[in-house]
């Protein structure tokens, strides 16, 4: 029973929101490679959504282009979530390993990515009055991802529903804290660098005189 390849498992998980991830865990299946590809597609999707959307819906400011925000919104946030979730789950006796969390999180993003990619594609065929179709597709994708996501967290840590929701909320808090600390760290390092640079300039002036 359920002798599925890695690829087939992806399909199985996405189409079975309630037992899919349990099966995945039971079979100890799931592939890091596929998960990474999914995150990469997420990155592409973010780019497409901002840059390739139908002209009649959205015009992007094309005089400057910076790829860093897109990297952060896909890879950055994803990795941050995975790490924070793992960190929180150790406090809650969750059973998921870092690898497992990585895989299920990526898998659960599939409907979202697909819906928004379809929406981006459709935006080149529909006019403004028909935006509601795109919107419906996007909402369905988003809702599906939310369901998959909760189910994935529940399965990977073997938590109750309430505990899962709590974990997700705490993970979000941890993410905010992480970003705050990162910004703080960067600023401090900047200060240190400026300090060192000032000493260097001071010395070099004195040496010259």
């Amino acid at each position: 029973m359920l002798d599925l390849t890695q690829g087939q498992f992806v399909k199985h998980v996405v189409t079975h929101p309630f037992e899919g991830f349990e099966d995945l865990r039971w079979k100890k299946s799931g592939s890091m490679a596929i998960a990474t590809v999914i995150v990469f597609i997420l990155f592409i999707q973010q780019l497409a959504y901002n840059r390739l959307y139908g002209f009649q819906y959205y015009v992007s400011y094309d005089k400057v282009f910076n790829i860093i925000p897109y990297i952060f919104r896909s890879f950055g946030l994803f990795l941050l979530y995975v790490v924070c979730n793992w960190a929180m789950c150790t406090l809650f006796d969750g059973e998921g390993s870092l690898k497992n969390i990585y895989i299920v999180t990526a898998y659960s993003l599939i409907p979202y990515i697909a819906a928004y990619l379809i929406g981006t594609l459709l935006s080149h065929f529909l006019i403004k009055d028909e935006y509601v179709f795109i919107q419906v597709i996007e909402y369905i994708g988003l809702g599906w991802t939310v369901i998959l996501f909760i189910s994935a967290m529940k399965a990977v840590h073997q938590f109750s529903f309430i505990k899962t929701i709590l974990l997700i909320l705490l993970t979000l808090v941890a993410m905010v804290l992480c970003i705050f600390l990162l910004v703080l760290l960067l600023t401090l390092f900047q200060q240190v660098l400026i300090f060192i640079f000032t000493i260097y300039t001071e010395l070099s002036y004195r040496l010259r005189v």
């Binding site: 009649q56 006019i127 403004k128």
Partner: peptide
């Protein structure tokens, strides 16, 4: 309209073209 970056007018032209 694309050069002028006028979304609404582009939308109308696009509708006609479609």
């Amino acid at each position: 309209f694309k050069v002028a970056i006028s979304r609404d007018r582009y939308n109308k032209a696009f509708e006609g073209w479609r």
